[in-house]
Amino acid sequence: MASSDDDFSMKTMISAGSAFSGDFRVAGGMMVDGDIDGNVEISGNIIIGDKARVRGNIAARSATIRGIVIGDVTAPEGIKLMPTSTVIGDVSTHRLQVEDKVVLHGNCISIPDVERYDQETAMQNQSKEIRNKAFAR
């Protein structure tokens, strides 16, 4: 994963016992130990703690997940799924690290080549749109 300054300095934190509802964007890194019900867009790195629960899509530069995510995770620089993590949704990255005892229920794109990654991601997004339209009827 990246080794920039915000790897270690999380500018935003949702602490344990806190809950947030709604979509939001954060510049820089973020640590989540509480609950989020909404989509999260981070320009830096995100860490989902072991007691954290996120119900929504996550888009970040990189992601380390220890808690529960019900939604898609897109982090081009890397995704780490730690032993306490559960992801019910699709993951998309150039580098994926999956530890023992992880629950991952969804599709996975992990391709180092940027051009192929972009093509596969576009095809997956198109497929999702078609599926969503079919279920909306």
Results as ranks from 00 to 15, higher is better:
residue 73 V to Q: 07
residue 78 G to C: 09
residue 5 D to K: 14
residue 80 K to I: 13
residue 71 G to R: 10
residue 64 T to M: 09
residue 94 H to V: 00
residue 67 G to P: 09
residue 26 V to L: 05
residue 16 A to S: 14
residue 112 P to G: 05
residue 28 G to D: 03
residue 38 G to F: 05
residue 61 R to I: 02
residue 15 S to H: 06
residue 58 I to T: 02
residue 48 I to W: 09
residue 126 Q to F: 12
residue 22 G to R: 06
residue 47 I to F: 06
residue 112 P to A: 11
residue 71 G to H: 11
residue 44 G to C: 07
residue 117 Y to R: 06
residue 131 R to H: 11
residue 85 S to M: 04
residue 53 R to P: 00
residue 40 V to K: 08
residue 83 P to Y: 00
residue 70 I to S: 08
residue 84 T to C: 07
residue 57 N to H: 08
residue 126 Q to S: 12
residue 137 R to K: 13
residue 6 D to V: 03
residue 115 E to T: 14
residue 135 F to R: 15
residue 130 I to G: 00
residue 95 R to S: 15
residue 63 A to Q: 07
residue 74 T to K: 08
residue 13 M to A: 10
residue 134 A to C: 04
residue 66 R to E: 15
residue 38 G to R: 05
residue 37 D to S: 13
residue 26 V to N: 04
residue 41 E to T: 13
residue 60 A to K: 08
residue 107 N to E: 15
residue 96 L to Y: 12
residue 136 A to R: 12
residue 61 R to F: 05
residue 97 Q to I: 14
residue 25 R to I: 01
residue 28 G to M: 04
residue 81 L to N: 04
residue 114 V to F: 05
residue 56 G to Y: 05
residue 74 T to F: 11
residue 12 T to C: 02
residue 26 V to K: 01
residue 3 S to A: 10
residue 21 S to V: 14
residue 128 K to N: 10
residue 37 D to F: 08
residue 94 H to D: 01
residue 118 D to K: 08
residue 130 I to H: 06
residue 107 N to F: 01
residue 109 I to W: 09
residue 87 V to Y: 12
residue 3 S to G: 13
residue 112 P to L: 11
residue 63 A to R: 06
residue 113 D to C: 05
residue 29 G to Q: 04
residue 66 R to V: 00
residue 37 D to W: 03
residue 6 D to N: 15
residue 65 I to R: 02
residue 114 V to M: 02
residue 48 I to D: 05
residue 56 G to R: 06
residue 105 H to Y: 06
residue 25 R to A: 13
residue 72 D to M: 01
residue 63 A to K: 04
residue 31 M to F: 09
residue 75 A to V: 05
residue 106 G to C: 07
residue 33 D to N: 12
residue 16 A to N: 12
residue 48 I to G: 07
residue 18 S to W: 03
residue 7 D to Q: 11
residue 26 V to A: 10
residue 60 A to N: 05
residue 84 T to G: 05
residue 15 S to Y: 06
residue 54 V to K: 04
residue 113 D to N: 12
residue 10 M to L: 12
residue 106 G to Y: 12
residue 59 A to R: 15
residue 97 Q to D: 13
residue 135 F to I: 15
residue 29 G to E: 03
residue 122 A to W: 01
residue 12 T to G: 11
residue 106 G to S: 08
residue 17 G to W: 07
residue 29 G to S: 12
residue 110 S to I: 03
residue 6 D to G: 00
residue 101 K to S: 13
residue 115 E to L: 04
residue 83 P to N: 07
residue 9 S to N: 10
residue 11 K to D: 11
residue 72 D to S: 10
residue 58 I to Y: 07
residue 115 E to P: 00
residue 8 F to D: 09
residue 21 S to W: 01
residue 66 R to A: 08
residue 51 K to E: 10
residue 122 A to K: 05
residue 66 R to C: 10
residue 42 I to Q: 03
residue 23 D to H: 11
residue 129 E to P: 00
residue 126 Q to E: 14
residue 130 I to N: 02
